[in-house]
């Protein structure tokens, strides 16, 4: 795949997805294909959001470095969660040129779409999320 995101942006993306839907006995968002879903979105319906994503992922990392002296992906999960919660509330320690809640809500929305929508979109590998919630598999053609 073409480089939509830098390596460090990809690390933030992966870590954030795995906090938005963490793994338990069902896969987390990344393992389930959430990254592929978002990359596909960035090349199709959500193309116009690519600049927002680039800025947002960098800004999340900058938040982590400023607050904890570590990259977002290297933080303890509890700190990652706290950081995401702060962004949702609009509480930031660095200067954001985009809306922090706006970006994090978009990221949450895309992550959830990838996880719960049909596998044809890149996410929801093996339809595991459907098995998890008990979405009907009966009578499928």
């Amino acid at each position: 795949m073409d480089k939509l995101f830098t390596e460090s942006q990809m690390r933030v993306l992966q870590a954030a997805l795995d906090r938005i839907i963490p793994a338990d006995d069902y896969p987390g968002a990344w393992e389930s294909g959430g990254g592929d879903y978002i990359l596909r979105q960035m090349e199709s319906d959500s193309k116009s959001l690519l600049p927002l994503y680039r800025l947002g992922l960098d800004a999340i990392d900058a938040e982590a470095v400023t607050a904890y002296g570590q990259h977002f992906a290297d933080l303890y999960p509890a700190r990652q969660d706290a950081l995401i919660s702060n962004l949702e509330r609009g509480t930031t320690g660095t200067h954001w040129v985009i809306s922090a809640p706006g970006f994090i809500n978009t990221l949450i929305s895309h992550t959830v779409e990838g996880y719960y929508a049909d596998a044809g979109q890149g996410g929801n590998h093996d339809e595991k999320s459907w098995k998890m919630v008990g979405f009907n598999q009966a009578g499928r053609p």
């Binding site: 839907i21 338990d24 069902y26 995401i84 949450i108 719960y116 929508a117 919630v133 008990g134 979405f135």
Partner: peptide, 29 residues
Amino acid sequence: LPIIFWRGSLPPDVPRWGAANKRWMRENF
């Protein structure tokens, strides 16, 4: 559809993300 459920059927105080959201979806769909 599970995605419609997530978008429109969660109680207002259930978090939209994280382990608590996943658990809620799993237990209550």
